[in-house]
Design a protein around this nucleic acid. Sequence first.
DNA 1: TCTATATATGATCATTTATTCAGATAGTAA
DNA 2: TTACTATCTGAATAAATGATCATATATAGA
Lengths: 128, 128
Amino acid sequence: MVDSLSPANEQCSCRCIHHERVEAAKKHALSPKQNEHLASLFKAMGDPNRLRILWALDSEEMCVCDIALFIGTSESAVSHQLRQLRLLQLVSNRREGPVLYYRLSDSHVSSLIRLAMEHFKMEEHRNV
Amino acid sequence: MVDSLSPANEQCSCRCIHHERVEAAKKHALSPKQNEHLASLFKAMGDPNRLRILWALDSEEMCVCDIALFIGTSESAVSHQLRQLRLLQLVSNRREGPVLYYRLSDSHVSSLIRLAMEHFKMEEHRNV
DNA sequence: TCTATATATGATCATTTATTCAGATAGTAA
DNA sequence: TTACTATCTGAATAAATGATCATATATAGA
């Protein structure tokens, strides 16, 4: 059992520890890759400005200018944020002339936000 | 319309902009407080180690030692992470003598993780 | 009381990250 | 081509963050 530990994990091997729980947790654990992917998704949603962008795009397409005005930051800052969201495939865009219209790639993001709202027992006062 | 902007948001007022979309986004937007709460929840879940902890605690109680061995970091690091999760009320603990057993505070966290897995079309290979 | 164990906490440090600025790219129209 | 607009990108900087180390607290037992 102990030899299934990676070499770096030696610092605690002498303490209380319920070895069977640790082994069970390892079996139940997500793969490192899955875990990284999920963490990066949540991290992307964990920035207040990005979260506002995502929530805004849930109800309508917006261009970079619109978002910058809505968020109250520079267009460059918004563009950087949008790139992150694009790389994670949370948003996609559509070009119309020189203007890029951004939207949510799928409904998972807004589902996650709504589910998270339940945790805080927030009301989703839809007034749009 | 424009006077509903906060004084700091002046940098984009001369660009293309679909003002009606910006106004609609503002109406639809979460309150700053709600937004901050949600962002902090997602941010907490956005660290790979914290996410592993949360996912592990979904299936069983673990003490700090267990978690440290499972994650492969020091108990102090785990304790710091657990404090953040406690302050956000994502986990709670139960004392048994000198040992603190941690568990998820409610089922929202694991629901969020499972929903996020759908975004990546991950399979939840339950082998525990 | 003293000792040992389990966990928590505060300070520090290295890394990450969000924004800003300057400049580049892409599209449109003259 | 030139000029203009919308957006993107890379570098730099300041702030936030996670881990480590040393120390403190809490509980149990002698």
